[in-house]
Design a protein around this nucleic acid. Structure first.
Lengths: 322, 322
DNA sequence: TTGTAGGCGTTATCAG
DNA sequence: CTGATAACGCCTACAA
């Protein structure tokens, strides 16, 4: 395999000159430049990137770390990767499952210089152990975090959730059931708070109905449709944690012969493909833009620039379920 | 940043000994080993992986190259990545868009030693230019290819498509419309062939209805529902190129007040989440297993092993649209 | 069992 | 404008 020395010898110059040609640096006469370039082409030479990385102490590689592969992650990953590639970086994916150790492995890559930066979608380990890696390179997360060493593209879902509630109120719905996500999650807390404030504002009883806490699987939405049928005192609207959950509810309702929004209204969250597919009213969650921002933040730190971030906001997408 | 020399000095040994300790090589007394290890822990030292890669000429990194991010790619990527991680590799994603140059960049990574192997989901460049990179490392593709230097996890869709057709026939449907994918694609050819053979076998007229060629977007399925309404001589079944296409057809049909499978039957392809969501009868396409096989093939070449591949086959998933 | 020293392929600093 | 040469951090014969 050809290396820079070989090129130098064949071109009758020093390796320094070859290096200058490769990296388009000045101080090479155009004749020598052309000549060296010709030899390079002739031998089909490319620089060994590991040597470059070793020398420069940077790899132009970023990592993205998440426990599992979901639709949302797909969107995030896609936009992040595209932005990164645009900026001259490549990105490698770490799927951690539920394995804390696996997550640490990704962070070790930052330490051992294989990665210049990292975006952590959902963490497994405690913040303080992850935070200790910040000194090895920029870390950005999707989640909310109070740490000046780790930046975040977090969006407070309070605002988005309130959008859904206000929309329902405006449409005349008063008997609203909430299906939240993970009990422990911060997003759930924000949404609960939004609902509490909403009830206070309009003088509604926040505990008129059961509150659901789900893992986001479609089948849990299906269960809720059957739950509705069983109730004597029935709600007239559902706000669902995700579009998938909502789609479970909607499709099962149809199987049961119910009609939406006549029997009850449904609002999803995220505005993913299924929402379009099922004509779901939903809250648009700009995950793609968050991915782009994640890159911008990393890039800004790495290159000490200060490029502006994309503006992020939720908005309501009204379709046929309300 | 601590390096091997520094550890050596502090431990009062040579860097060679430290290296032996790091890599768990024999010929080190357990006392020195323990001592060196202690210094390593103390200084929180990790080897610089770029130096290791440079020395060894391998990175334990694989690439995955695709034009755009889709649901199917997500499944493939997920399984491939998980398998790769299991085998001690990490994988980096290259999104090429429609840019041939971008695709070549990924292949250059193979050449310049940043990647040990590559899986090409959908190619942009011609096979012969891509094939010329095979000498730099193993390449596996999702597509069909006649090239002994590039392996493939391709599955002939003839078989899967025939499954759909036979199922419809068995259910009594005789007036079948086909919605294929890209005109140029090999999969389309296989499917056309399956349909031709099917018609021959049962003595049907293969050109009784228009043949559709689509890009796979949902809206094209929607268009087909409206097309059906406009026909005087109506078909009684549709075989759709993808579940998404099928879901467009099904949801639009419902909006138009049609009922499935009474007005017409629909069979999808891929068995993705939407198929479950909409109770679509479909053909299960084991994309995840193809991803795993892609890794096994690469790993076999890289480590000169010969691990067995997963068995791959289509099967029918009968739901409520037939 | 341990150490010495050369080399992996580049880049960057100095001289010239 | 060009060339020597010293790093970058690690591994591995070969010696001791």
């Amino acid at each position: 395999m050809a290396n820079i020395q070989e090129i130098a010898k064949l071109a009758g110059v020093s390796s320094a000159t070859v290096s200058r040609v490769i990296n388009h640096k000045p101080h090479v006469s155009s004749e020598t430049r052309a000549h060296v370039q010709q030899i390079i082409n002739q031998l089909d030479y490319v620089p060994n990137i590991n040597a470059v990385s070793l020398k420069k102490g940077a790899t132009k590689m970023l990592g993205i770390v998440a426990p599992t592969f979901s639709d949302s992650l797909g969107t995030f990953l896609k936009n992040f990767t595209l932005a990164a590639q645009q900026g001259g970086y490549n990105v490698t994916l770490f799927l951690t499952g539920l394995d804390k150790q696996k997550e640490l492995e990704a962070f070790e890559r930052l330490r051992n210089k294989q990665l210049d930066g990292l975006v952590l979608v959902i963490r497994l380990n405690e913040w303080d152990v992850l935070e200790s890696y910040a000194k090895y390179g920029p870390i950005v997360t999707w989640q909310r975090v109070e740490d000046r060493n780790i930046q975040s593209v977090f969006m407070n879902q309070y605002d988005g959730y309130m959008l859904a509630l206000e929309h329902l109120y405006e449409k005349g719905y008063r008997k609203i059931v909430n299906a939240y996500g993970n009990t422990a999650g911060l997003n759930t807390k924000s949404r609960e708070k939004a609902y509490a404030d909403f009830c206070q504002k309009y003088d509604l009883n926040p505990n008129e109905f059961k509150h659901f806490y789900n893992q986001g699987h479609m089948s849990e939405g299906e269960t809720m449709a059957r739950w509705w049928v069983d109730q004597t005192h029935k709600p007239d609207a559902f706000v669902m944690a995700t579009d998938y959950l909502a789609s479970g509810l909607v499709t099962e309702a149809k199987r049961l012969g119910l009609s939406i929004p006549q029997d009850f209204a449904v609002v999803g969250f995220d505005n993913t493909l299924v929402a379009h597919l099922l004509d779901l009213t939903t809250i648009h969650y700009p995950i793609g833009k968050q991915g782009e921002n994640a890159f911008i933040m990393i890039d800004n730190q790495l290159s000490k620039r200060t490029n502006p971030l994309e503006a992020l906001s939720f908005h309501l997408v009204e379709r046929l379920t309300t």
